[in-house]
């Protein structure tokens, strides 16, 4: 199925959880935040959040800035 990850299309398997998806991407959980369809997903429910086709995900982190 296809998701929109940080504005670009991304293929992933049906039924994958957010936790699995982030691991597949090779991203550490620390220091990140995830928004799914404009709603923040708390870290505590990453593994119980099942992604669906068409989900719009934003994965953000802290970067240098003034």
């Amino acid at each position: 199925m296809q998701l929109i990850l940080n504005g670009s299309p991304k293929e992933t398997e049906e039924g994958v959880t957010l936790g699995q998806f982030l691991k597949e991407l090779g991203l550490p959980e620390k220091g990140l935040a995830v928004e799914r369809n404009l709603e923040i997903v708390p870290k505590s429910v990453y593994d119980s959040t099942q992604l669906e086709a068409g989900d719009r995900l934003e994965v953000i982190q802290f970067v240098g800035g003034g």
Binding site: L5, K10, G26, L27, I60, F62, V63
Partner: peptide
């Protein structure tokens, strides 16, 4: 610090 999208193409990139 600023908040920006993670570079999902290169998750090994240096982090602040």
């Amino acid at each position: 610090v600023a908040i920006r999208r993670v570079n999902v193409m290169d998750p090994t990139q240096e982090r602040l």
